[in-house]
Amino acid sequence: MSAEPSESLSDAVSRIPPGSSVATGLALEHAIPFAAGHELARQGIDDLTLIGPISDLLFDQLIGCGAVSRVRAAWVGNVSAGTGYRFREAVENDEIDVENHSNFSIALALRAGALGVPFLPTRSLLGSDVFAESDCFEAGTDPFGGEEVAYVPAIEPDWAIVHAQRASPEGDVHLWGNTGIVDPAVGAAENVLVTAEEVVDPETIHSDPSRTAITREQVSAVVECPWGAHPSPVAGHYNRDNEYYLRYHGATDTQAAFDEWADEWVYGVDDREEYMRGVDADLSITEPTVAAEVRYGQ
């Protein structure tokens, strides 16, 4: 099995039905699939359950667009500025259901899903209200040593959406820089959508197999999407557009203000190319680091 070639991001995203659980923003502040997220909103795919560790802006935007019913995450906001106003207001108005996690508990939940086991134990959470106030976790006892542990149940998302530097048309993916919880989420998810800065010849993937983070049988769709993670950074491609995060914070403190923002940046553009015409920032890599040559061979 391999990925079905997709003509466009629009085609690929249209395969995600309303009501799906979607894990994304998995590399934390790095390589966030904003282009795919905005396409979800443009297509009106709603009633989503969003799953992630920290979400730097993208969950806030999808909540503002009315696409979200439930969030299972450790943190939702804007790392440059703190508050995500659309998340805050939706919680305070009881418009979305939130399952509070820590970063480790969401990572373990997805790892359990990837391993095909019902839960994993941890020494984290104990003594916190993340644990005490949640009906997600259970207190347990190590059957061998008798110590108290917390049980974290498996999460198996319907979809994981990942942005990467390069992928082959078949769906083999090179991803580098920090990866957060991409690996457990891809392993746990039923379907994986990959957006890549470049779609490359399979030979490029085969030349450096240790760089391959995702293989084709896990992937449902691959789309070439340059700048698909803006305003987040992508190692080797572009820097974080911090001003964009600050302007978003200043421009979305009410729903009406957010709607204006979304009309410009989400609904007012057809695709990523048009979106990027609105970005006026030099995010280029100024000091490229080229890795030492890696040899395989036989």
């Binding site: 920290i54 995450a73 906001g77 703190g82 305070e92 820590s102 984290s124």
Partner: peptide, 18 residues
């Protein structure tokens, strides 16, 4: 009267515990 929602734990709970 208002309860203000903040971003949440992130990794803080894990760091605090361990």
């Amino acid at each position: 009267d208002r309860e203000i929602r903040l971003p949440g734990s992130g990794g803080a709970c894990d760091i605090a515990c361990m």
